[in-house]
Design a protein around this nucleic acid. Structure first.
Length: 406
RNA sequence: GGAGAGGUACCGAAGCGGCCAAACGGGACUGACUGUAAAUCAGUUGGCGCUCGCCUUCGGAGGUUCGAAUCCUCCCCUCUCCA
């Protein structure tokens, strides 16, 4: 649709209004709305920047919120620059985590950036995405230039950043180099002459700083389009790999589906808003019904984005089979056993379902282990093993046993 | 440079000579309940020997003691105040 835009004349203001309305969905803030309206009304493609920190090579749904917004800009005909912070990545971004992040080596940054590149194109249109690296202009800066940049900002201004202020107040370390992150990010905007920059709410400070720095360097400040941080599957903390509450976009369909189903019911609406394009009135309808069905619809929509219709349908069916109807999954790993006489503890261990004998014993004692649907209760005695028998540990771990004939 | 506070298991945080494998909370796991991997409730949560036992663990290295997460020495890291 957007590629047709050049062919038909649309009055600029009206176009701007339409764009603005669409762009507002799922944002936490736009600074400022007026600036954005005005820039959109210019009728030229805007240069939209997104900074990517290459320390997290696995993109999860939390990252996609801002990527989807970027894609929306692309579809509206704007020019997108995905800026990989290969230089800043080596400094370590203090944002989000309340502790200092370790610095990455050059090799790590390179490897991560490659992964990033490959993953963001699951959402962005590769044809209309320019990828850049900020080492291009940051690496050549000499110390005098760095000081000049640093002179634009005061300590008090830096401490306005909530994260810094909090850590400072709570007597936790704040390293000087962390201050440079915001400076560098602002300088990126100067180097790119960005009209708009996207970022999560954790980037608010950096985005505001970029506006000021652009002004200091004689440029018109970019518009900051701020997306919310998506809560993870626990529904409380922001989605992050280190918290283990994330849904990765590279994960298998069944895993993705299951993880979406594990979010608290209260999060369904929010996920719909920022992770899908399902019209909001339709979302309201779904939310009025059974939460399980709404969540299943959400899960299917999301899985479809990354794995296609067929895989999403299969994942939905599989979920219904295993969790609703308590049937066996269609696929499960096979485990080849060489001995036919094993205690149940050894069996669980042999299938890799427990990290230690103690854990295996515990699982059995808690009633979490069954063989062919029969709960195993005795950790010690040998269990009769049939070729093709199914071992289940907990609600969702299965293995088919293959007993070697000798 | 000086003075003081602190570094405990996945995370937060108690403990300050034996009753400490280490309270409590979170997380995770298991069960019950749910035609949701939601919510709620209960239990489990270092390793090895099937409830007594043994081994490894409380920033690091040594030492005191029958016995140390707990006391001493040195070192590393963080914070505060002073210079």
């Amino acid at each position: 649709m957007s590629h047709l835009r050049g062919l038909c004349y649309t009055p600029p203001m009206r176009l701007a209004d339409e764009q603005l309305a669409a762009l507002k969905r799922g944002t936490a803030a736009i600074t400022t709305m007026e600036d954005l309206a005005r820039k959109l009304a210019l009728g030229r493609p805007l240069r939209v920047k997104l900074g990517l920190d290459p320390s997290a090579p696995d993109i999860h749904l939390g990252h996609t919120v801002v990527l989807r917004k970027l894609r929306q800009f692309q579809d509206l005909g704007h020019e997108v620059v995905a800026l990989i912070g290969d230089f800043t990545g080596r400094i370590g971004d203090p944002s989000g985590k309340s502790e200092t992040r370790r610095q990455l080596t050059e090799e790590e940054v390179e490897a991560n950036a490659a992964t990033y590149r490959q993953q963001i194109f699951k959402i962005l249109d590769p044809e209309r995405t320019k990828i850049d690296f900020n080492s291009r202009w940051l690496a050549p800066l000499n110390f005098a230039e760095v000081c000049e940049l640093a002179s634009k900002v005061t300590l008090a201004r830096m401490l306005e950043r909530d994260d810094f202020a909090t850590r400072f107040r709570e007597n936790r370390p704040v390293h000087l180099h962390e201050f440079f992150y915001a400076l560098m990010q602002g300088y990126d905007s100067v180097a790119l002459r960005a009209d708009v920059e996207l970022g999560g709410t954790d980037q608010t400070f950096n985005l505001m700083m970029a506006r000021e720095i652009q002004r200091d360097y004689g440029q018109e400040p970019e518009v900051a389009v701020i997306t919310p941080l998506l809560e993870g599957t626990d529904g409380v903390q922001k989605m992050s790999k280190s918290l283990g509450n994330y849904i990765g976009i590279d994960e298998p369909p069944a895993t993705m589906f299951g993880k979406v189903m594990s979010i608290p019911d209260s999060m369904i609406g929010r996920y719909f808003e920022v992770l899908t394009t399902v019209p909001l009135p339709r979302v309201e309808e779904l939310l009025a019904g059974n939460p399980r069905d709404a969540k299943a619809a959400l899960a299917q929509t999301i899985v479809t984005d990354y794995h296609g219709d067929a895989a999403a349908q299969a994942a939905a069916d599989e979920f219904a089979r295993v969790f609703s109807r308590r049937e066996l999954p269609t696929d499960m790993p096979e485990v080849l056993l060489t001995k036919s006489g094993l205690s149940s503890v050894d069996l669980v261990l042999a299938c890799g379902m427990a990290a230690s004998r103690g854990e295996a014993r515990r699982l059995i004692q808690q009633g979490g282990v069954s063989l062919d649907g029969e709960r195993l209760t005795d950790p010690i005695g040998d269990v009769a093993l049939r070729d093709g028998a199914v071992l289940q540990v907990g609600p969702r771990r299965f293995a088919r046993l293959r007993v070697a004939r000798g």
